[in-house]
Nucleic acid binder design. Structure first.
Length: 477
RNA sequence: GACCCCGUCGUCCAGAGGCCUAGGACACCCGCCUUUCACGCAGGUAACACGGGUUCGAAUCCCGUCGGGGUCGCCA
């Protein structure tokens, strides 16, 4: 029995990744199987250099480990899809030769045009199969001459595909709902659909446990297994974590980075425990439990399919329980490994040394480096920009978040550069806009240099405060 | 919009035909404890989406409606 978690290194380590990893892990351990970590980095445009390591660190931090993966190796290495390109190319070639796939030379522009037309006519969207019946030999020649193209699966035109979801039973999808999925992109790398099927087969994955959002593309995967004449794994689709409004959890409405929870002082086991409460229960009233206990009690029958709202209040309550159960030695260690340590202090001190005359002034001076959400009421009246409405100011803060998120690295230089461009684009004065940022990030009129402060606070806390400030200011009169 | 999934307190779960005048937890409200606050303890408000079936009997099974969500990319 083998399962895998297959995160894509495109940003901050996501709680959803941890959630699905937990269920994979628990199921594997319960059944005495292997848990594999595979990095799905086939999208060069979105891949982030630091993301992969952050995923490893975050998963380790909450207490999960894997039997095979890019960092620990294993019998099916490599575990990074960018290093497995030849497998996908070979697989696609096989389908091409068998006439089960074809080369498509349609341009992105044409596809966009088709899509717009389909929407205008209110028809089902999807590829119109323009290249499907072109002569294969001619297509091969065009490709040989270097013409850019993709490889698409020849999906059946009639009939239907049945996906046996182990949590819901058979799900039947008509052929007309399945279009000719791209298998190999024009850059020669596979799409998720091809790569996950090829790798799951090659890596002998027996059970695919993933989020519900994948259910609608599973028929394509089933079709691929059939085309290769491979045995498909069993599929389990877990419900999606939700925002308070029930939509799929998203960073605009909820902190989604595992690092955020780490930075605000949620204990790793509390987070993991909380994730175990999402869509699953012991069957009795037990709410606080260890990973080992969950493994022991795990059964798919105890999974519920309604999308669970990720509720900060309840996570905080659970975390409180964990804190209270720590002895003082352990609590001290937890606090130290959080932020109260020399390493962190050495980042903070350069910002405040000139501002203190006695050591007893230190704690008040650096209080907001060790706090989570701030109280903006004392400065709310000052959080405005001449000739801008509160709504504009709120929106501008959100804009600034977008700008800094698009950048790799959270250094003072990057933050300042983006702030200056942002200020200019808004037509504001830096003395006003920077003060606004200062209020948002520190809730004070006076602080050490703004961008250094943000950098030391870290991406997660900074982003959260900017967002909170945006909300409060946006609603202000 | 089309297709697919889901539907028990505001939220997370229990409930797998009679044990349900629906249970626990978070949040909220009240009280006790206490110099204060917090913890702790004791109470309280609050839900089976709706309509049809099936059955002696339905939160539990079936159908429909409604509601929510997901997907419809050369992103995963």
């Amino acid at each position: 029995m083998r399962v895998r978690i297959a995160p894509s290194p495109t940003g901050d380590p996501h709680v959803g990744t941890a959630y699905i990893a937990l269920f994979n892990y628990v199921f594997a351990k319960k059944a005495g199987g292997k848990f594999v970590l595979r990095i799905e980095d086939t999208d060069q445009t979105r891949a982030r250099a630091d993301s992969e390591q952050m995923i490893f660190d975050a998963l380790h931090w909450i207490g999960l480990s894997w039997d095979e993966g890019p960092d620990v190796g294993g019998p099916y290495a490599p575990y990074r899809q960018s290093e497995r390109a030849h497998h996908y190319k070979a697989a696609a070639g096989e389908l091409l030769d068998a006439g089960k796939a074809y080369r498509c030379f349609c341009t992105a522009e044409r596809l966009a045009k088709v899509r717009i037309q389909q929407q205008a006519e209110k028809k089902n969207s999807g590829y119109d199969r323009h290249c499907r019946d072109a002569d294969p030999t001619e297509a091969r020649n065009r490709a040989a001459q270097g013409e850019t193209h993709v490889v698409r699966l020849k999906a059946p035109l009639t009939g239907s595909v049945v996906v046996h979801d182990q949590l819901r039973g058979p799900v039947t999808i008509d052929a007309d709902q399945i279009d000719d999925q791209v298998l190999l992109k024009s850059d020669g790398l596979p799409t998720y659909h091809l790569a996950n099927v090829v790798d799951d087969h090659l890596m002998q994955i027996t059970h695919v446990i993933r989020a519900e959002e994948w259910i609608s593309s599973t028929p394509k995967h089933v079709l691929l297994y059939q085309a290769f004449d491979w045995e498909a794994p069993q599929f389990f689709h877990m419900p999606l974590l939700r925002n308070a409004d029930k939509s799929k959890i998203s960073k605009r409405k909820n902190p989604v980075s595992i690092n955020y929870y780490r930075d605000v002082g949620i204990l790793p086991h509390a987070l993991l425990n909380f994730l175990g409460l999402m869509g699953w229960s012991f069957g009795d009233d037990r709410e606080k439990f260890t990973l080992a206990e969950m493994v022991d009690a795990f059964a798919w029958e105890k999974v519920s399919l309604g999308g669970p709202v990720f509720n900060l209040d309840k996570l905080t309550w659970l975390n409180e329980k964990y804190i209270h159960d720590l002895d003082y030695e352990q609590l001290a260690d937890a606090v130290i490994s959080w932020r109260l340590n020399k390493e962190h202090l050495i980042r903070v001190l350069p910002l405040v040394r000139e501002r203190i005359k006695k050591l007893d002034e230190l704690i008040p001076a650096i209080e907001y480096f060790y706090s989570g959400d701030l109280d903006y009421t004392p400065v709310l009246a000052d959080m405005k920009i001449p000739d801008a409405t509160p709504a504009d100011v709120g929106k501008a803060l959100l804009d600034y978040i977008e700008k800094i998120e698009a950048r790799e690295g959270f250094t003072a230089a990057v933050l300042e550069e983006e702030a200056r461009k942002w200020t200019e684009a808004l037509g504001w004065k830096a003395k006003h806009s920077f003060m606004l940022l200062r209020f948002a990030v520190t809730a004070r009129k006076a602080s050490p240099p703004l961008f250094e402060t943000m950098s030391v606070l870290g991406k997660e806390i900074t982003r959260r405060r900017l967002r909170q400030a945006a909300e409060i200011v946006g609603k202000a009169k």
